[in-house]
């Protein structure tokens, strides 16, 4: 058992093709050890979100296989533990919420389904979970429409926590948020990781976010993994030209405050 559990999510030679054009990802292998925090970076169209959907069992690979705690996703039933143990958080928290349900109802429903608790106990548990992600007071009885982006994302995270996940896969969880609110959500993810020993997979185009939250980074380009390794190594010693450009853009942002007129600009083709 313990040996099987050492790898939480595992993609082996995974290819995903849509109806037309080049495959979204091709021949990607990636293992996420239990308890690890792994970032997946790449630009739009690099295949990082497709890979995330394969890792959480939401999309079946066209070729290759994806496993969760050693079991093939294709063999995992709707109500199996593994399905529940892997939860996903998306960029657009509004689209992920039922517009007619309050945060309290949304989270309570998840508690009812997952833990089989009666309504009253589920509501109490939901209140506790919402408090845990920093939501309390009148906010928990409002409709999603009247919540801010940061508050909605907290609701989505609380609902994911109701499932008592072991793995959280977050796809651009802060991209739609303002800087000051992004920091609150990043702090929440850091705290959850520490307190709950969550395995964290963080997909982002922003290498600063990945650098802050994760230990390992996987760099994707054109549907494949071009480089992976410890965050510090990749940031200080990128091996691939694309990673180098990504890291340069990151350092340009991270280095105050010179005006760099000396650096040549690559021509766009």
């Amino acid at each position: 058992m313990s040996e099987q559990r050492s790898i939480a999510l595992d993609a082996r030679e995974v290819t995903v093709s849509y109806a037309r054009g080049a495959p979204a990802i091709a021949g990607v292998s990636l293992a996420i050890p239990a308890g690890a925090a792994v970032g997946i970076v790449g630009e739009s169209g690099s295949g990082k979100s497709t890979l995330a959907r394969v890792l959480v069992g939401e999309r079946a690979p066209t070729a290759g296989e994806a496993r969760v705690f050693g079991r093939r996703w294709s063999e995992v039933g709707r109500r199996d533990r593994e399905r529940r143990a892997v939860q996903m958080v998306f960029q657009d928290p509004y689209g992920a919420l039922n517009p007619r349900m309050t945060p309290l109802e949304t989270v309570a429903e998840a508690v009812e389904v997952v833990r089989g608790q009666p309504r009253r106990a589920a509501l109490a548990a939901a209140e506790e979970l919402l408090d845990h992600v920093g939501l309390g007071g009148a906010v928990v009885t409002r409709r999603p429409r009247s919540l801010s982006g940061g508050q909605r994302q907290r609701v989505v995270i609380a609902r994911a926590l109701a499932c008592e996940p072991e793995v959280l896969v977050a796809d651009e969880p802060t991209s739609a948020l303002d800087v000051s609110v992004q920091a609150q959500i990043l702090n929440l993810l850091l705290r959850l990781r520490r307190e709950r020993e969550l395995t964290l997979v963080l997909i982002s185009h922003d290498i600063a976010v990945v650098e802050h939250l994760t230990d390992e980074v996987v760099v994707m380009l054109n549907g494949g993994v071009v480089e992976s390794g410890p965050v510090e190594r990749v940031l200080t010693d990128p091996h691939e030209p694309y990673t180098r450009r990504l890291v340069d853009a990151f350092h340009m942002r991270a280095t105050p405050p010179a005006v760099r007129t000396d650096s040549p600009i690559e021509e766009q083709r």
Binding site: A183, L190, A208, E211, H212
Partner: peptide, 20 residues
Amino acid sequence: ASDPALTPRGTPLRAIEGRP
């Protein structure tokens, strides 16, 4: 203080509480 690029890795950001 909210910028992860300026904060040591893995340490909490000194986020601004609340919302605009």
